[in-house]
């Protein structure tokens, strides 16, 4: 049986096709989230790679902020449930999932089989989310991907202490003007996101094993700073960004069987 998961986020769209709720046949990622061509591109891509058509799918589930407006999906689930399922499929021992997305940061606590026990999300503030990193990368005029690599090679981290994205932006600009090293700034920015995320994790309880999902999982600077804050190693899969889509396909499989 084939099932399809579609994860329509705020900045990217992801799809995954599974056989029997376990074996990943194809996955895709397209830039552009809700309200763009991203979802259609991701869908075309995944079906092409899998060599299958939409009609071949026994069930299709959507997740992410665009989940309620996805015509192809017969069901939808929150990204919380889907990230939990996707993370569990990659790392069965995982009990805590940290997902830093474009719009929000979530920490999900799991019991066995990827079942969600509880979760905690950021409050209305953008600091501590992927958006904060986007803003800071543009202040430093470097690609987003470079933030993490610069952070890990920094000898020290500059203190970025403001809890507000706008304040932190001014703080970084003045540090930059004061000649603070770019790598140290990148490390400070990553540490700031990690610090806010760690507070969420601690409120929910740090239960190992911990893994990261979502796009920010690829940022080694944030990951290393979070490991230091939590005192726990963090598992990261190269597919971390696809956990939501894979989880949605697992969800569809569970509902269809």
């Amino acid at each position: 049986m084939y099932t399809l998961g579609i994860d329509i986020g705020s900045t990217t769209s992801k799809c995954a096709v599974l056989r029997d709720g376990a074996e990943k046949l194809a996955a895709s990622l397209a830039l552009g989230g809700i309200g763009t061509k991203g979802p259609a591109e991701a869908l075309d891509g995944v079906l092409k790679d899998a060599g299958l058509a939409l009609e071949d799918m026994a069930a299709v589930a959507a997740t992410g902020y665009g989940r309620t407006r996805c015509e192809q999906a017969g069901m939808q689930a929150s990204e919380l449930t889907c990230h939990a399922l996707g993370a569990h499929a990659a790392f069965p021992q995982v009990r805590t999932v940290v997902d830093i997305g474009g719009q929000d940061a979530k920490v999900i606590s799991l019991v066995g089989e990827g079942r969600m026990r509880n979760f905690m999300m950021n409050d209305k503030c953008a600091a501590g989310t992927g958006r904060f990193l986007d803003v800071m990368a543009s202040v430093l005029q470097i690609p987003l991907d470079e933030l993490g690599s610069r952070a890990v090679r920094a000898e020290s981290a500059a203190a970025v202490s403001s809890t507000c994205t706008v304040f932190a932006e001014s703080e970084v600009i003045s540090l930059l003007a004061g000649g603070v090293d770019m790598d140290a700034l990148a490390a400070g920015i990553c540490a700031s996101v990690a610090g806010r995320t760690a507070a969420l994790v601690k409120r929910l309880g740090v239960v190992p094993a911990v893994c990261m999902s979502g796009g920010v999982a690829r940022n080694d600077g944030v990951r290393a700073a979070l490991e230091a804050e939590l005192g726990e190693p963090i598992l990261v899969s190269p597919d971390a960004q696809l956990f939501g889509a894979v989880g949605a396909a697992i969800y569809a499989y569970k509902k269809a069987t």
């Binding site: 902020y65 689930a77 929150s78 990204e79 919380l80 449930t81 719009q103 969600m116 509880n118 209305k124």
Partner: peptide, 13 residues
């Protein structure tokens, strides 16, 4: 949207 995600998450638990 943020309200909806949280409520759906609660329901799913």
């Amino acid at each position: 949207a943020q309200y909806d995600t949280r409520v759906q998450g609660l329901m799913e638990i």
